[in-house]
Amino acid sequence: MSEGTIRTLIMVDKQADRVVPPSGFTAQLTLFVSGAMAFLAVFALALSLASGRLADRWASELARAATLRINAPGDQVAAQTKTALTILRQTPGVAEVRALSREEQAALLAPWFGADLPLDALPVPQLIEIRGAEPGYDAQGLRLRLAAEVPGAVLDDHTRWREPLVDAANSLRRLALVSILLIGGATAAMITLAANAALAANAQVVEVLRLVGARDRYIAGAFVRRFTLRALIGAAVGVVLGMAGVMLLPEATDEGGFLTGLGFQGLGWLLPLVIPVLGAGVAFAATWAAARRTLKELS
């Protein structure tokens, strides 16, 4: 497409725009499709961003936290715990270590065994909470050292929990992005159909315009501008409604877990504003391609 053609297509020419008769259902169809697709795109975008945030949060939070469990005979627990704490404090990449108190361990078990659990009578292992620094510690190296010096120590760096969760969140993000692409493709297909219908319905108008010396890009421009404007308006309305819907979603809470906090945060609220522009771009390209093809067929 040459520069002159692009200029002809996008320059507002009220006189040229009037040569295309005001159409009925194709106008409503384009407005509705653009609006509905933009509405869905807002949610897909919100889901994509929220999934990304979730994946990042799970990845960083779980990556920093680890638990060391001391499974030793009762008379060796204190000694092994002391040795383990010493080793951990010497390990590069470990920011903080803390042995859980009896009360804290009892509180952890209370949901399953009740608050009156006689912890002293049971062989409950001692737990040590580890907080990693940036960059983190070498888990494999730490395991080897603990195996040599603290025989009852088992290091759980949450890898087996973290990876599936992060994978799931990343899959969700990819799915949302694919949805946005599909929404764009479906919009392009629907607008192409509407543009084809409009061009076919106005074949006689096209014929008259050609007979009086109109170039194809002039005729195409009248249709392209009309459909692009409709798509822009429809998408803008859809985005406003979509953003209102997202605002009404419940805010992120710990109790709500994954299903809350699906909205936008901070500058993320500006991202949906790109959707009408993209919608108009899709409509522009789809109508231009449809007009070129149809005008060629009509010659």
């Binding site: 040229a16 040569v19 108008v205 008259v208 315009l209 007979l211 009086v212």
Partner: peptide
């Protein structure tokens, strides 16, 4: 043309001026 093809949604003056419009001269 024998059947005088016009754009029925445009007033007569605009139909007559159509060759000017499409050639970019405008009114």
């Amino acid at each position: 043309h024998q059947d005088c093809r016009f754009l029925d949604h445009l007033p007569l003056a605009e139909n007559i001026a159509l060759p000017l419009t499409v050639s970019g001269h405008g009114l």
